[in-house]
């Protein structure tokens, strides 16, 4: 600050000398000096608004419901456990009207028939990235976002009882749409709850499925992989994810609880696959400042949650 002030003083002195020489009126000198000084003051008090990176990591547990006719015509039920990381931030484009959202998840399920006759374990890992457009607010403290996303998931089912068809591999990539509503609920002053409901569904994509009675031996050992990748549209594939979360921020860290209903359906080559997970989430949220932005101006930083 002192250094800036000295520079400013020097500039003013030089101006005085220059103006005397150019025979300017004293009043004009005062006005010009005040203008320059006030401009310097504004700059020194400028607060740098930074869109932060909002991150939530949760563990989940719940109930699974499976049907995969490649393995069995019977319904399987069991439990599912998972980990999810969600990141939301403002992308470089969009002028604060768009946000970017990223999910990384992994889960493991253990399932059986009601007779306990065929233990089937399953697991998957996935990634999705999307951008959501913030619609003009209509209700105070409520925001609505809509936008596209891309996702990829790979997983498996393994039936302990089956001989040559114990595994059902799963893999898909897709482009879909998401809609999200966020609401800031002020039940307690200075401690608002952030409620979010998000629904997303893929609209088009590709997924893996063997033919009706094609063995993995034929596909992977003998190399007959013709026609095992299928275009995924609502006619043969329908997935839906409903996610409700409640965030309780305490300073830069907070608590998240949530519920997720995740449905996956494919019906191709007379093979029916259905997976329904109903899981409860609990975890923590945190607001970060991206490292490359932090170095710009750390002293006068105002971190803004990209969601609210």
């Amino acid at each position: 600050m002192k250094f800036k002030f000295l520079i400013r003083q020097n500039i003013l002195n030089l101006l005085k000398i220059y103006l005397k020489r150019t025979i300017l009126h004293k009043k004009q000198i005062i006005i010009l000096s005040l203008t320059l000084f006030s401009a310097g003051m504004v700059k020194s008090q400028e607060v740098c608004d930074q869109r932060g990176l909002f991150s939530a990591t949760t563990i989940s547990a719940g109930f699974s419901n499976l049907l995969d006719t490649y393995i069995s015509p019977l319904d399987y039920k069991g439990s599912v456990y998972g980990v999810t990381n969600e990141r939301i931030y403002s992308p470089r484009f969009g002028k604060d009207k768009w946000i970017a959202q990223q999910f990384i998840w992994g889960d493991f399920s253990s399932n059986n028939t009601i007779y306990g006759s065929g233990l089937t374990i399953g697991g998957s890992i996935g990634y999705s990235w999307g951008t959501l457009y913030k619609l003009p607010p209509m209700i105070t403290d409520m925001n609505i976002f809509v936008g596209p996303y891309v996702s990829a998931e790979a997983g498996f089912l393994y039936n302990m009882r089956n001989g040559n068809n114990p595994v059902s591999a799963k893999a898909d990539i897709s482009i879909g749409g998401s809609a999200m509503i966020t609401y800031k609920l002020k039940l307690i002053k200075k401690l608002p709850f952030f409620i979010r409901y998000e629904v997303s569904t893929p609209l088009i994509g590709m997924f893996f499925s063997p033919h009706y009675e094609q063995s993995y031996y034929e596909i992977f050992s003998l190399g007959n992989n013709n026609g095992i990748i299928h275009p995924g549209v609502w006619g043969n594939r329908f997935d839906l994810k409903n996610l409700i979360t409640i965030d309780l921020p305490f300073s830069w860290i907070g608590l998240r609880v949530g519920f997720e209903n995740n449905i996956r359906n494919t019906h191709v080559n007379d093979i029916k696959y259905r997976r329904i997970y109903n899981t409860f989430h609990v975890g923590f949220t945190k607001d970060f400042i991206p490292f490359n932005r932090r170095k710009n101006n750390i002293e006068n930083l105002n971190v803004i949650n990209p969601l609210f």
């Binding site: 069995s72 015509p73 019977l74 028939t113 007779y115 306990g116 006759s117 065929g118 039936n159 009882r161 089956n162 001989g163 040559n164 068809n165 009675e213 094609q214 063995s215 031996y217 034929e218």
Partner: peptide
């Protein structure tokens, strides 16, 4: 025939030639 497995509503397992 490459055998596959399936199961019946009472939990019995069925094996059959599929391919």
């Amino acid at each position: 025939g490459l055998p596959f497995s399936s199961e019946l509503p009472n939990g019995w397992t069925l094996r059959f030639s599929a391919s």
